[in-house]
């Protein structure tokens, strides 16, 4: 068996450069369809959520472009971060984000997701959302109007259609960096139930920063993973990092 985790597991790849011509055509068709049927996760993380009911209901009516709220993260495509995130919520957001199935998209709503906004000196809220999860689109403003939310959805649809909204792959390729940022806030005891490294191997998205000093902290939870019955990469394979072939974006 090869030591390259990107080759070790025989399953579907999502990297466009490795796809055959037919595969790429099918991908484009899938992207085209996907862009017209997006489910937004119903999670009100902050005050921007108050502009979502007008956006979704009769007046601005986003259902006409194929969007609708979805109650469970496992079936949702878009995670909408509606405003400021306290550290306590960020934990739940990261867990939610990891439960969503790829391809998945994150939109940061409002100034507070971009640079802290008017809560810049608050001890409770985070300042830069893209340090913790990859973000596809931002909307500035406090709070953004429904027209702006519509515009960002249309922009995202266009980018999905063209195959440009690939930020979610970055989470797998640089998982160690994202996890490091999360550990800086939550402490090194932090662990989410989802096995991101295993998913990266399955998706063949292991990059040079997928594993590192921060993911090494997760190893101590291995017995719990076993009890939960979660399949995780073998430690030998995880330690094989120096021999990895780097998959560039």
């Amino acid at each position: 068996m090869s030591t390259d985790p990107n080759q070790a597991v025989a399953c579907r790849t999502v990297d466009a450069e490795e796809r055959s011509l037919l595969g790429r055509v099918l991908d484009r068709i899938a992207d085209h369809c996907r862009a017209r049927s997006l489910f937004v996760l119903h999670y009100c993380t902050g005050c921007g959520a108050i502009e979502l009911p007008p956006t979704m209901t009769s007046r601005f009516d986003l259902e006409r472009v194929g969007m609708q709220p979805m109650v469970t993260p496992r079936q949702a495509d878009i995670l909408l971060i509606t405003g400021y995130l306290s550290v306590k919520t960020l934990k739940r957001v990261v867990m939610t984000y990891e439960q969503m199935q790829g391809p998945k998209y994150v939109i940061g709503l409002g100034s507070c997701t971009i640079n802290g906004g008017m809560y810049w000196n608050s001890y409770a809220t985070i300042k830069l959302l893209d340090r913790y999860i990859p973000v596809d689109n931002y909307i500035a403003g406090c709070m953004p109007r429904p027209e702006a939310i519509q515009q960002v959805f249309l922009d995202l649809m266009g980018r999905i259609d063209r195959g440009e909204a690939q930020a979610w792959k970055d989470y797998y390729r640089r998982y160690d960096w994202y996890l490091g940022q999360q550990q800086q806030l939550f402490g090194t005891n932090w662990q989410a139930p989802t096995d991101v490294v295993g998913e990266a191997i399955r998706y063949r998205l292991v990059g040079e920063q997928t594993l590192g000093s921060h993911t090494a902290h997760l190893e101590r939870y291995a017995p719990y993973y076993d009890q939960l019955g979660i399949i995780r990469p073998e430690p030998a394979r995880m330690k094989a990092r120096p021999q990895l072939e780097v998959v560039s974006r």
Partner: peptide, 25 residues
């Protein structure tokens, strides 16, 4: 506590008139 922003603390850090922007939130 999921929506905690520490309003009462950050209002102590700002001028009386600056807090006008903060309170409706």
């Amino acid at each position: 506590g999921y929506l905690h922003r520490g309003f009462e603390k950050i209002m102590e850090e700002r001028l009386w008139i600056q807090n006008v922007a903060l309170v409706p939130r």
